[in-house]
């Protein structure tokens, strides 16, 4: 049997909690930008100085990066590399995996430090992990309770065709 590939669903309540958590991390770690990406490359949320950032591209490349290093890890017998750090001339990237499936990216400059970011990320990860667990539980119980009413259950062929007109 093939595992059913259910959608990844985000609800208002958890979305708010996530944003509160990463806003807090942004302040406490003195970071410039923080974003959360699904392992498949879809942006979940971004906070901080995001106006001039192409967050969609960042999300896709981050996921590609994690996927590639995950592949490397397996080849040498590791489960995964849970933290990646890229040092630039001005800005640095700290990438970590939260709750096994979500990628947390922190962009910071000399106003912060790797040590501080590491420390705060660790704390925030526990909190985020709990939120994603709640989210998964919610989605699961929704599914058991007769399946979530898909917002697309009512769409017509015309709706779909109109997208391309």
């Amino acid at each position: 049997m093939f595992a059913s590939q259910s959608s990844f669903v985000m609800y208002d309540e958890e979305f708010k909690r996530i944003n509160v958590a990463i806003e807090k991390l942004l302040r406490e770690s003195n970071a410039k930008v923080i974003f959360l990406v699904d392992k498949n490359g879809q942006l979940i949320s971004a906070v901080g100085e995001t106006e001039h950032l192409d967050t969609t591209s960042l999300a896709s490349l981050t996921a590609g990066n994690i996927a590639a290093t995950g592949g490397l890890a397996k080849l040498i017998g590791e489960k995964e590399f849970s933290i990646l750090f890229h040092e630039g001339e001005k800005d640095n990237l700290h990438i970590s995996i939260v709750a096994g499936r979500v990628i947390l990216v922190v962009i910071f400059d000399q106003r912060s430090s790797l040590g501080l970011v590491r420390l705060r990320v660790k704390k925030a990860s526990d909190e985020l992990g709990q939120i994603f667990k709640d989210l998964a539980d919610k989605a699961e119980s929704a599914e058991k309770g007769g399946g979530t009413q898909s917002p697309f259950a009512e769409i017509t062929d015309d709706d779909i065709d109109n997208l391309f007109s």
Binding site: Q5, S6, S7, F8, M10, Y11, E14, F15, K16, N40
Partner: peptide, 8 residues
């Protein structure tokens, strides 16, 4: 896997 975001 599609990602459905009810918040946004």
């Amino acid at each position: 896997m599609s990602f459905i975001n009810y918040a946004s």
